[in-house]
């Protein structure tokens, strides 16, 4: 189950920047906290995030414990042709997540 929400305008205008917004459901555990028994909670944050457009990298981010839970990323892209955006991310626990969205150029 993809645990993310993607927001893209439809359709987008050719050669004009459009905003991509993605929210990922993730605790972004900092590693600085302890549980009720005083035991340290291991760090688990999304380390890498990458966005590709028709396979070509267009945006990437490296995140750390300073990013709040359920990160919300916004960035701008320009498209010349319709295609598919793919989003991939990986956290400290090694869990990989991915999602995709179609872009229609008018």
């Amino acid at each position: 189950m993809p645990d993310a929400r993607i927001s893209i305008p439809t359709p987008v205008k050719r050669d004009e920047p459009f905003e991509v917004r993605i929210q990922i459901r993730h605790p972004m555990e900092t590693g600085y906290r302890t549980d009720d028994t005083g035991k340290a909670i291991a760090r688990n944050v999304i380390r890498t995030f990458a966005c590709r457009y028709n396979g070509q990298p267009v945006f990437s981010a490296q995140m750390s414990s300073g990013i709040a839970a359920n990160p919300h990323l916004r960035f701008f892209l320009t498209a010349t042709d319709s295609g598919e955006l793919t989003f991939e991310w990986q956290d400290d626990a090694g869990t990989r997540g991915s999602d995709r969205a179609a872009v229609t150029v008018a």
């Binding site: 645990d3 993310a4 929400r5 917004r21 929210q23 990922i24 459901r25 919300h72």
Partner: peptide, 8 residues
């Protein structure tokens, strides 16, 4: 699109 509750 901003409301994190929508993830749930």
């Amino acid at each position: 699109a901003s409301n994190p509750g929508m993830l749930w």
